[in-house]
Structures are given as C-alpha cells and as structure tokens.
Write a protein that binds this DNA or RNA. Sequence first.
DNA 1: TTGAAAGCGCTAACAA
DNA 2: TTGTTAGCGCTTTCAA
Lengths: 342, 342
Amino acid sequence: MNDKDKPRKSRRSSGAITLRDVAKLAGVAPITASRAVNSPDQVSPDVLKKVQDAVQRTGYVPNRVAGGLASSRSRLIAAVVPSIVVSVFVETIETLNNTLFEAGYQLMLGQTGYSPEREEALLEAIIGRRPDGIFLTGIMQSSKGRSRLLASGIPVVETWDLTPTPIDMLIGFSHSDIGREVADFLIAKGRRRFALVRAGDERAMRRAAAFQTRVAQQGFTGVFVDNVGASRSLKSGREALSRILSQVPDVDAIFCSSDLLAMGVLTEAMARGIQVPKRLSIVGFGDVPYVADMMPALTTVHINGSGIGRQAAGFLVDRAEGRPVVEPIVDVGFAIIERDSA
Amino acid sequence: MNDKDKPRKSRRSSGAITLRDVAKLAGVAPITASRAVNSPDQVSPDVLKKVQDAVQRTGYVPNRVAGGLASSRSRLIAAVVPSIVVSVFVETIETLNNTLFEAGYQLMLGQTGYSPEREEALLEAIIGRRPDGIFLTGIMQSSKGRSRLLASGIPVVETWDLTPTPIDMLIGFSHSDIGREVADFLIAKGRRRFALVRAGDERAMRRAAAFQTRVAQQGFTGVFVDNVGASRSLKSGREALSRILSQVPDVDAIFCSSDLLAMGVLTEAMARGIQVPKRLSIVGFGDVPYVADMMPALTTVHINGSGIGRQAAGFLVDRAEGRPVVEPIVDVGFAIIERDSA
DNA sequence: TTGAAAGCGCTAACAA
DNA sequence: TTGTTAGCGCTTTCAA
C-alpha cells in the first residue's frame, strides 16, 4: 500500500464521506463507484453490490454541488416571485416545486417584493448559482435584466402574462382581455356605475386600463379608480369601499385586482348593509381556493395557477435535459367564474 | 506569450466567462481577481479598478457553485415545509427568505406534503446540496431523519414546536399549552358543549388532545372531534360543522386547527342562521392576516410566524458564519386573540 | 465493463 | 498586497 492510498485527510477537506471513500471501501476506482451510484446498469452486478454495501455502511450522500460543477448541470431551478404571501402565486409555486421534485430537481425561491432593485440583485444571485432553468413571474421588464438572462444562456420561462417578445419560453394570459371581458360581463349584468380597486403593480394596472377603456367605449361614465398601492390586504379592500362610496355613492359594480381585496370590499359592503349583488356587484381576481365556498361566493377571474406551475416545470426540465420544447409559448387563458357576488 | 496563456477553451468548459478570463483581462492572477470581487479592501485601489473594469466589460458573474465547492460554504439554506398553500407557514417562509437574502443567502424550498416518504427523499436531496443550514417546520420525528441530519453536520433549526431533545436549534411554542389555554378560555366564557375540527397532522392532534384533556378535567361532557384529515379547506370547515351539528346539536364552542377551517365553520354557521358568538363560539389557529378584518372578526391563536422566520434566519446565518448562537432554544409562545367569534 | 487522467471554476494555504 | 500551488468532490474524456 503506497502513500497515496492512505486515508490522509487534507486540511481543507470538509470531513464528509466522499465518493473516494466509498470507492476505496468497495475496492474500485472512484469513477466506477460514481457509475454504480448514478447509472447502476452500466456496472456489473458484483461491483454494484460492493458499492451499494459501501454506501450503506458509510452513509454516503453524493455531493451534488461537486457533481454539478463537474457536469455543469445543477439540477436546480430558480423561481422569482413578487411575494408568496400574495396568495395568487402560491399554488403555482407549490405545483412547480412538487413537479420539479418528482423530476429530481430542487427549487430555489426568490422574492422581489415588487421592487426592481431587489429583482436585479436577485437575478445576479440566481445566475451565480448556475441553475438549469429560471421561472419568472411576469415578464422581465428591465432591459438590463433581459440581457443578463439572455447572456447567461439559462433556459427561462416567463409566466402570468403575454408578450410578443419573450426572452425564451412563455406561459401566460392576457391581462387586457381580462379587463375588457370583466367590463363586458358587468355591463351585460346591467351595471352602469363602475369602480376599480387595484394594487400598484403593472399587471393590475393593465387589467384596470383595459376595463376603463371598455367602459368608456360602451358609453358609460368614467370609472372611479381606487389605488391601494402595495397594501393588498382585506383591510385595504374595506377601506377602499369606504372611499369609493364617499366619491361615487351610486356605484353598482367594482372590479378588484385580487380576491383578497374583493373580500375586503364584500366585507365592508356587508358591514354597511349594502346588498351584494343586488345593489353592488363585486368581481375578484385569482380564484383563490376558498372564495368559492364563502358566503356569498365570490365571482372572480379564474387562473389555472397550478397548471402554469406544472407546465413551466415540464418546459424547464425538458430544456435542462436537452429535449426541445416544441410549443414554448402558450396562452393558458382565464375564465370568469360567475358565483353570487356579481 | 506561451501556450498556457492562450485562450484555449477546453471541450469541457461551459463557455461562460470565468474568473480566469477576468484576471487575464485585468492582468492579475485569478486569486487577486477573486479578492477584488469578494473582499475589495484586501486589494490595492489600482488592482481593484482594473478588475472591476474587466468584470464590467465581460459581464462576469461569479460561479457560486464552484466557489461553494472550494470553500465548503454554499450560502444556501434549505427550508422544509409541509406545504406553502397552508397559509399559516407562508409568512414564516417569506420572512425567512427575505432575511436570508439580505444576508447574502439563497433559500431552497422543499415541501413534504405531510408525507414521511417525501420528507425522507427531500432530506436526501437537501443534504446532497450541502446547504449551510436547514430550516425545519416542526420537529423531525423520524429517527432515521434525525441521525442523517446529525451525521451531516449541517446546522439545523427546528420550529413551530417544542421538544426536550432538539437536533440542534429550536424556535417554537407548546401545542399542548395552546389546547389547554383555549379550553380554559372557552370555559371561562361559559361554554359547556365542545367540539374540535382538526386536520390529521401531529401538531393539530396534540392541540386537540390537550384541549380534550382539559375539558374532561374541568368536568364537562366529552368533546366531539371531527377529523378533516388532509383537506384543510374552507369547505371542509363548512362540512365539519354540518356533521357536528347532526351529532351534537347543542354544541356551543368549536376550536379549529386552522383559521381556514374556522372560517368554514363560521361561514356554515352564518348560512344556517346560527348566531356567532351568541349561540356558538369559534376559535381558529394561526391568525392569518385577513381574519382580523373579517366580519365577524375571528378569535384565534396568534403565532408570530414572521418572527420565527426572522429569528431562524439569524440563527442559521450566525452558525454558517461561525458565530455561536448563545440561546439556541427559544419558546416564542402564542397569544389567544379575542375578537368577535368567541 | 473498468479505469487513469484531466479538468469543472473557484478559494484555502502558504510563500514572497 | 500579490501570487503559486493544490485542492474542493465529482464527472468527462479517452483508453484499455
């Protein structure tokens, strides 16, 4: 036994069991142990058994970061979300995460808090990790961000929106169409005096703008817009209705930029004895699970968040494993779900 | 210029800009470039500028996985959560993630879906990534899991519960105390006929058991328990109340294992014209943001989820950076928030 | 089927 | 302050 076979631990070693240790114990070369662990059918049954025994005995857990560096495949996917407390994104992330996990990938989660500066820092941190794919909530607006992403060569899927110029793949729906169709829906219900309660993000503004345009096109009075900014709580919804009522006492339809805001408006309406939907129609956005079973049940815009997550995971994994994605741009649409509140 | 200075790209290279490229452009050694990037004050202003220019010109983004391998510090923290659609955990994860990000760490998210098999697979995947720390929701029950974690040497913080034998660090509260105190609270309100609506997870069962014990101790009739299993929706809450009413028509107090279930019970009560809290008291668990502003506002058990996330992030970062955590076991307690529903 | 050699891109350790 | 050397733990490449 010569010197280099001695179990001399360099001062730098992390001390954990490595493939080397396993290989030595099994009496094979490291690369053979690697094959036994990663592609068992490339190895003789005899070797396989010896290696598996060694793994068992040592409690060896492969170091995926070393593997990732060597193979330039991290099996890591990054997701960028504005916030997970904004419940409309939660189902998407949950399904994305679960689908990825089943395919052997881990999810790295980053939140921008709707802040461009944070988004930029996040992007840098993400690219530095060399994930095999990046999931983006929304379209990357900043051109700096777009070019970084492009330069990184990492597969990207933008979601929750549509654009003629995606960075790479795209799974979304049209926010303008939603605004327009909700306006039509409410007009068809005989409503005449409209208001919007919306958060300050770009997509909510786009839905709102399309709604206003449509209402104007159809010849109705201007739409009162209440902007709650960053406070997307039920409470802001309640306060918003108070403000609206003081400005537009005869309001008879309100479209909110989220279900939670809609719940707030609904709650305040009930507190004031305003009958919903008789005197006031309320429409939400997102179709978060519980709004279907509330009383009254909320009329809202349904987005298949879970479907977006699943599909995005599929796209990203396909690309990570070298399979082309044949239709990388998909419009998943939306549906106005008519319940009791409108 | 000799051979090894030529920009010969090996067949294996990922093709991206590396520190080598930057160093060459700046006319310094790679390690000097590394220092300029990572600890700018260890380097002369002149070198710093040259390197920064080179970084700018090339669009270099450091490869953190290579860095992590070399330094055995991944700057990655893993979090294990039952599910993020279970809203009570969302705030914790959000705060954990944000706090970590500010300290320069990324979060890897894993969901067990309350399944032990998945938890085991997840643990393996996580340890393989060699994160600098692991955040666990709840106590690691499986002894196999515990020993794996212990063997990995990775700092661990268990949360949302208390145990005399934590793996490492612990930030939690007593579920038995909650069950007991809610029982006392309801008894003090003059309630006499109790029911529980609970999900099938271990912590909910512990709260329920303590509640039952206390009620029995105080000499009241047995508590009717409705187990909704894995369906934690508002709808299950509604259905639970229907079942309870058919078994215990004179029920006057219900403690639910989550706010969402409580909202369901509340909704069903309103649908049936049962006056809350006059005829029926309802108590939730979690104090999810919006329940304070509902009508009636929900009486519930407040947990400082955000605080747990922040504190856990602090512990994990301290340990990752070699700072000892002086009081690594903390009971954050809870508070019964009395609102309108009880 | 198995193995030796040579990296992946970075940083620790030591030296100048 | 800067550089040289030698890895981190794995996998690709090429050869046997």
